Amino acid sequence: MSRRRHEPTNVAPEVFATGDGTPKGRHIKDVLTALVHASRDGELLPSERVLAERFGAARMTVRNAIAELEAQGLVRRVPGRGTFVQHPTLVHSEIFRSFSEDMRLRGMVPGARSYRARTRPAPRDVAARLRIEPGAPAHLIERVRTADGVPMALERTNLPADRFPALLGAMGKDGSLYEVLATVFGARMETADQTVSIARLGPAEAKRLEVPDYDPAFLVERTAVDTMGNVVEYGRSLYRGDRYAIRMHVSR
């Protein structure tokens, strides 16, 4: 079955024509750049064939213009699916904030998908991080965090159930975990130990984050401590490698 023809709808037809002597390749790049900035993150761009017809240009000329946009980080090409708008990379800084707080400070709306939560006996490695006995009850919360509706990270976090017995009932799909801990339980985060490594997204993880299989991601392990020095959570989260950069302050 052939794919439905995807036409550009937010660009006036006369924009595709050149009349001021601008080289064809530069004109195509300028128009596509404006189209990207006017589109939502993750939106599918028209195919090379459609664009070549609209611009009255060779497909190779269009392809070269798209390659320049990809090099600038404005679009990403997914084999077999097309070219997608990609808005600027977010910097994951050393400042300790919740995902919701971080997105709000960037002027974006935090949200969540695929929310799953349950209480289980803590595996030995999780128990060691939470400083509880192996097999003691621990809450596991897993969800895809979004910014302006775009999947950004797959969060998995564990918390001691004995300390926060009603947590899962108080949490909402889109809610901020740290805000619930502070307002309902009086637990306020103070510091966290984090390690960052590179991982490849398996097919199931990539599907949930809407990226190609085995795309690189940042694996962030976090152990958070409250103002009393007690461990509150231990998590392993995957942040999209195409949307994040890591910032660190180092000194001698």
Rank of each mutant, 00 (worst) to 15 (best):
residue 207 K to D: 09
residue 176 S to N: 10
residue 72 Q to C: 10
residue 83 T to V: 14
residue 165 P to I: 09
residue 43 E to S: 15
residue 183 T to C: 00
residue 72 Q to T: 09
residue 189 M to N: 01
residue 36 V to S: 12
residue 15 V to G: 01
residue 131 R to N: 08
residue 78 V to D: 06
residue 122 A to P: 04
residue 237 S to P: 01
residue 127 A to H: 09
residue 98 S to K: 08
residue 91 V to A: 11
residue 84 F to H: 05
residue 61 T to E: 08
residue 34 A to S: 14
residue 151 P to E: 08
residue 208 R to Q: 13
residue 236 R to W: 03
residue 4 R to I: 05
residue 216 P to N: 08
residue 206 A to Q: 00
residue 157 T to G: 04
residue 134 P to F: 07
residue 89 T to V: 15
residue 18 T to R: 15
residue 123 P to A: 02
residue 68 E to R: 15
residue 161 A to G: 03
residue 16 F to L: 06
residue 106 R to V: 00
residue 122 A to T: 06
residue 96 F to Q: 11
residue 249 H to E: 15
residue 113 R to Y: 02
residue 56 G to N: 05
residue 190 E to N: 11
residue 4 R to M: 07
residue 66 I to T: 08
residue 218 F to H: 11
residue 72 Q to V: 05
residue 74 L to G: 11
residue 119 T to Y: 02
residue 138 A to G: 08
residue 191 T to I: 12
residue 195 T to K: 15
residue 243 R to G: 00
residue 97 R to T: 12
residue 160 P to T: 04
residue 237 S to K: 06
residue 8 P to E: 07
residue 223 T to P: 01
residue 112 A to P: 04
residue 117 A to S: 14
residue 83 T to R: 00
residue 113 R to S: 11
residue 237 S to F: 01
residue 18 T to P: 02
residue 201 L to Q: 03
residue 41 D to E: 14
residue 218 F to S: 00
residue 97 R to M: 12
residue 245 A to E: 12
residue 60 M to P: 08
residue 132 I to K: 02
residue 70 E to F: 15
residue 171 M to L: 10
residue 193 D to H: 12
residue 220 V to A: 06
residue 5 R to G: 07
residue 108 M to D: 01
residue 164 F to P: 05
residue 201 L to Y: 03
residue 5 R to S: 10
residue 51 L to Y: 08
residue 169 G to H: 04
residue 155 E to Q: 15
residue 194 Q to C: 09
residue 15 V to C: 07
residue 202 G to H: 03
residue 96 F to H: 10
residue 155 E to R: 11
residue 36 V to E: 14
residue 11 V to Q: 06
residue 218 F to T: 00
residue 67 A to Q: 13
residue 144 V to I: 15
residue 54 R to E: 09
residue 234 Y to T: 08
residue 5 R to H: 08
residue 125 D to K: 10
residue 238 L to S: 05
residue 201 L to T: 03
residue 241 G to C: 09
residue 159 L to A: 13
residue 251 S to I: 06
residue 216 P to V: 02
residue 170 A to D: 07
residue 73 G to V: 11
residue 35 L to W: 15
residue 239 Y to T: 04
residue 29 K to S: 13
residue 97 R to L: 12
residue 203 P to V: 10
residue 53 E to Q: 13
residue 47 S to H: 07
residue 177 L to W: 03
residue 170 A to P: 03
residue 8 P to I: 05
residue 245 A to C: 04
residue 182 A to E: 08
residue 220 V to Q: 02
residue 169 G to P: 00
residue 216 P to T: 07
residue 135 G to S: 10
residue 103 M to A: 13
residue 182 A to G: 06
residue 146 T to F: 13
residue 93 S to F: 02
residue 82 G to H: 02
residue 73 G to C: 09
residue 63 R to C: 01
residue 141 I to F: 10
residue 164 F to G: 05
residue 216 P to R: 13
residue 195 T to H: 11
residue 194 Q to M: 14
residue 4 R to F: 06
residue 199 A to Y: 02
residue 248 M to E: 10
residue 21 G to T: 08
residue 223 T to H: 00
